[in-house]
């Protein structure tokens, strides 16, 4: 007989694993379609006389957008489950419906935004719409499926009181917030500006001057996701996975006030880890100016 705590920890680990996949897919979806903060540069590029072939869709901030997709998917899944459909197929169909909504919003957002830049001579490339939207929907589908799935696990197996659509809505917002805070920095500060020296922030004077030429031909959103999948995407997955796992772990293993103490210890460890990374970075990269304020790097 398996010890119940082992079973519970297995469920917690499963939620963490699903969240890791969801986080990575969420960030990569926003890189293909260029959503969130780095898209300000894609939008600006055409206005600065740099027409490009990067997909431009800022439907909204990522958290509300993912709140909507996940709540839509979870609502459809809940209805299908209420009609006694199998859980797996209900979540799969719910996620598919949400991915279609994401695709619809992507097309309208991209075409509306790009058409509004006619005066800056930014063309609407129809082949880009056809090439990017399926990839956006595919990444979105994976993210939504995983978020709805771990929300279902939390609701059904872990006994969370929130109904599935509300839980998926809240986790969708959290996933969007994490994706927009972590992986998008890799896309915005590094991939969009590989024409600038590595090891510094983007000088405001170069705003809008995004890289427009790819490894082969002109760069597009799919080229961007290829690069971001190597670092930004996986780290976003790690962030969402850690959030879901650590929060569920402390409430599964401990009880009452001990969950609070365990949580505080986790936060303290993260503060110390952050400090270690900070010290290491300062030592490794050194200052940009000497003590007299003269630039040395």
């Amino acid at each position: 007989m398996v010890d119940p705590i082992v079973m519970d920890l297995g469920i917690v680990a499963l939620t963490g694993a699903l969240a890791t996949i969801a986080g990575a897919a969420e960030d990569l979806e926003s890189d293909v379609g260029s959503q969130s903060n780095p898209n300000s540069q894609v939008q600006l590029a055409a206005q600065m006389n740099f027409p490009h072939r990067i997909f431009n869709k800022a439907i909204s901030g990522e958290p509300p957008a993912y709140g909507l997709w996940c709540a839509s998917g979870a609502t459809v899944a809940s209805v299908l489950m209420a009609k006694e459909m199998s859980i797996f197929f209900a979540i799969a169909i719910g996620s598919f419906v949400a991915a279609i909504i994401l695709g619809l919003f992507s097309v309208t957002a991209h075409m509306g935004r790009t058409a509004s830049q006619k005066r800056f001579k930014q063309p609407v490339y129809m082949d880009m719409v056809l090439g990017h939207v399926p990839s956006i929907m595919a990444h979105g589908y994976i993210a939504i499926f995983c978020i709805v799935a771990f929300s279902y696990i939390m609701n059904h197996f872990m006994g969370h009181p929130f109904p599935l659509p509300l839980l998926a809505f809240l986790w969708g917002i959290a996933a969007g917030a994490i994706g927009s805070s972590t992986g998008d920095v890799h896309y915005g500060a590094e991939r969009e500006f590989q024409n600038q020296p590595f090891g510094c922030g983007l000088n405001a004077a170069f705003s809008g001057n995004i890289v427009r030429k790819g490894e082969a031909g002109l760069r597009n959103g799919i080229d961007n996701v290829w690069a971001c999948a190597k670092f930004g995407g996986p780290l976003t997955g790690l962030a969402l996975g850690m959030t879901v796992f650590l929060d569920n772990w402390r409430t599964t293993v401990f009880e009452g006030m001990n969950t609070i103490i365990a949580g505080l210890i986790i936060v303290l460890i993260l503060i110390l880890a952050n400090r270690m990374v900070e010290v290491k970075a300062r030592k490794a990269y050194g200052p940009y100016k000497d003590e007299d304020g003269v630039e040395i790097a």
Binding site: V185, E190, F198, C200, I266
Partner: peptide
Amino acid sequence: IGSMIMISVTMFVGQLIYVYGVGVPP
């Protein structure tokens, strides 16, 4: 605490991207 864990993890992972992906010190 749930909120603190989420924000700490997000800031820490964001920091890793700034330091190792962009190459800037915090």
